[in-house]
Design a binder for these strands. Structure first.
Lengths: 204, 204
DNA sequence: CCTACTTTTAACCAATTGGTTAAATCATAT
DNA sequence: ATATGATTTAACCAATTGGTTAAAAGTAGG
């Protein structure tokens, strides 16, 4: 068997491809640039992943998994809704702080090839129905206000994700292009988004 | 002078370029495809707009202006804050409903060339400071809760824009890929976003 | 009609790009 | 050591792409 060497090279390729694809997108990336980034010959890319498309799909799936991780367990636990939401928002924004370019990458590519997205989502087994049920139970119990559960879920995602997706725009418009200030601001949003949402929906 | 003919062709090119660029982005678009869409020869594109880059910049500026229109007047008027926000959200989501692909296009391209974005924003004369002042006055007067005005502005934009930016994703995840249902849902958001925000920040 | 100018086109070009091929190098088992 | 199969490389290729050029077609004034 091959073992170490193969895995090593494959990993180098995946890392390099992720770097380049995230920065330039599928259309803007060149196989040669990925090879350079990985420190290998271009033909080796095709040896491991037959085509650019297949390499890209591998990266997209990987990044998608990281950007929309499974959160089933604790969101469906019997913790109080206030705590569930607080924990989710904190964990999720922390995740995005560690991978700030993931959301924009996903957004960029889903409008290029929406059909492929459907495949990925199905293979992920994403199923938000349980989540919606949970929200509706909380409404029934009078702990949060009545609203479309899909609106609620989209609002949570929007408030968490959007500042990362529109990072360069917001940074210029609202922060004089000062990256440190903006990063500090994003960290604080773990608190402010939580408050904003709970303020809106919690019945106290 | 040339007159009719020139304007006509230039407009045909701009329309075709917008269609193609919005669908495929700068990197994914081909000059030949734009020429075909406009029903003209490819060389004519270069006759009117010297390079692909220049043609793209013209489209980007045009779309950007439409996506972030000047809203100064009535947001700085002396209407009650509740009414200002309600009107803004309604108008803004209506605008996006008419141009649902604009936000994703802007997002896609700002991460490709953030420097160019800076130019466009500066030439637009966007200056949110007056808006922030207005929000802070409202907080001072005890009409809305205290918070970072930038958070508030970003939240409003996020809740309005995100469902359009992530359209294909949300449509698959939450709406079984049924476009009509999702469009109806987006229309209803004019109301639900307004309520969500006012619920959160209004002091009654 | 003729001249001067603008608009439009067909043909062409150099550079880039994803992908292939055949040979070289490396690793491993016997 | 050497045969075998996996890994890596340099050289190459066909197709595509943005852009150019020179000639043709259209337009308007005199």
């Amino acid at each position: 068997m091959s073992g170490i060497k193969k895995d090593n090279t494959e990993e180098k390729i995946l890392n390099a491809a992720q770097t380049v694809f995230i920065k330039k997108g599928m259309d803007g990336s060149r196989m040669q640039e990925i090879a350079d980034e990985a420190g290998i010959n271009k033909a080796l890319l095709h040896y491991y992943f037959r085509t650019k498309q297949k390499l890209f799909e591998a990266i997209f799936k990987k990044v998608f998994k990281h950007t929309f991780p499974n959160i089933g367990e604790f969101m469906l636990s019997d913790l109080p809704i206030e705590e569930k939401l607080a924990t989710f928002i904190e964990k999720y924004i922390s995740l995005l702080l560690k991978n700030p370019f993931f959301p924009a990458f996903i957004i960029k590519e889903i409008s290029r090839d929406p059909d492929f997205l459907a495949t990925v989502i199905k293979s992920q087994g994403v199923n938000p129905n349980k989540l919606f049920e949970m929200f509706e139970n909380e409404m029934e119990a009078g702990r949060i206000i009545r609203m479309d559960a899909r609106d609620l879920m989209i609002n949570i995602l929007a408030l968490s994700i959007f500042p990362f997706v529109a990072k360069p725009l917001i940074n210029i418009m609202f922060f004089g292009n000062d990256k440190k200030t903006y990063n500090a601001f994003l960290k604080k949003r773990k608190e402010s988004v939580k408050e904003f949402i709970l303020n809106s929906i919690l019945i106290r």
